[in-house]
């Protein structure tokens, strides 16, 4: 199945990184993949988002306007994208930072208190991975093996000690 994903949040929450892991996981499974970040002034402290596509076919527009998966890590991102989610799609929302609930009934919305959980479980700063785990569990965008390989690929050689906590956070998300 193809995935058209939007990941959005504050700069520094790791939405671009989480998107990169998704794209790499797709690549590990020999899919066509694309990753397109928002760029410009919003990169520096404001909201950041990226579009990720995984597909068996060549990817047309890498810009995702109607995501079948949305990961929203803050209120502005939730407000901006929740109505864009394609009918039948899935939204994974960090409910520690988003206190709203959608009235849409044509999508599945998972509210995960990822930031609070991350702090509690000694995984500070890895709310993005918890949400990614939840998204993985919901959409099966890739196999666990592919995701594991992707994490190892995306973390630079000098920071490989961070791989384990990242994987743990994804597993935690999957278990929720």
């Amino acid at each position: 199945m193809d995935n058209h994903v939007v990941l959005a949040g504050f700069g520094g929450q790791g939405v671009l990184f989480a998107g990169k892991i998704m794209a790499y996981a797709g690549l590990m499974e020999d899919k066509n993949v694309s990753w397109l970040p928002s760029y410009g002034p919003e990169m520096r402290g404001g909201t950041a988002n990226c579009s990720v596509c995984l597909s068996k076919d060549p990817i047309g527009s890498p810009l995702v306007l109607a995501p079948d998966l949305l990961i929203a890590m803050n209120l502005p991102s939730y407000e901006k994208f929740i109505d864009a989610v394609a009918p039948g799609g899935i939204a994974v929302v960090d409910s520690s930072l988003v206190d709203q609930r959608t009235s849409r009934t044509d999508i599945t919305c998972c509210y995960v208190p990822a930031t609070t959980l991350a702090d509690k479980k000694g995984l500070k700063g890895l709310a993005n991975m918890i949400l990614l785990g939840k998204a993985l569990e919901q959409t099966k965008f890739a196999s666990w093996d592919a995701v594991e390989q992707a994490v190892l690929k995306c973390i630079p050689p000098k920071k490989q000690h961070l791989a384990q906590p990242n994987l743990e956070a994804i597993k935690l998300g999957m278990s929720l």
Binding site: N32, V33, S34, W35, L36, P37, I59, P62, L63
Partner: peptide
């Protein structure tokens, strides 16, 4: 263009 410059692909 900005899209091709900024996007990642294999």
């Amino acid at each position: 263009d900005g899209m091709l410059g900024q996007m990642m692909e294999p």
